[in-house]
């Protein structure tokens, strides 16, 4: 797995994009997958920044490709238990006046990936996403 640490701050998003693009170039991933990786990683990363301020230690983002499977791993160090996979689904058919932005990001992550797992060990929150590549 190719891993890199990033400051736990929204300002890291541009550096994360550069990390994703470098990985994509090395692993023959197309523009659609670059967009998808940016989207799902940003949503998880920003969730951790907003809801898990914790120790303020740098977070790690890891990517790997094994044949037609992409694995994405985010680790948030020295935090409390916070499982985003258990959030209830968002009703995307509500009328405008009943819509709220909250919760939408995680809901969309679930639509983009094939597997979304949470682990909590030694005060570290670990999110692992799996995405099947199309032919």
């Amino acid at each position: 797995m190719t891993e890199k640490k990033f400051k736990k701050d929204f300002s890291s998003l541009e550096s994360i994009d550069a990390f994703i693009r470098s990985f994509a170039a090395d692993h023959s991933l197309d523009d659609e997958m670059v967009f998808t990786l940016n989207f799902v990683i940003e949503e998880i990363f920003t969730n951790m920044v907003k809801y898990q301020p914790g120790s303020g230690k740098d977070m790690s983002v890891g990517l790997s490709r094994e044949d037609d499977l992409l694995r994405i791993r985010l680790v948030d160090y020295g935090v409390e238990y916070f499982d985003p996979t258990s959030k209830p689904p968002v009703d995307v058919n509500k009328p405008l006046e009943e819509r709220r932005p909250g919760g939408l990001g995680v809901h969309l992550v679930k639509m983009y990936v094939d597997d979304f797992r949470y682990e909590f060990t030694d005060d570290n929150s670990i999110i692992t996403l799996t995405k099947k590549l199309k032919d």
Binding site: D17, F35, N38, F39, E42, E43, T46, L96, E97, R99, P101, L104, G105, L108
Partner: peptide, 20 residues
């Protein structure tokens, strides 16, 4: 080139304000 749910939220709140 790119938008995340944060961007969607700004557009949604603007749309609600205008419509309401």
């Amino acid at each position: 080139e790119y938008i995340s749910s944060a961007g969607l939220g700004i557009l949604l709140m603007t749309q609600r304000r205008l419509k309401e």
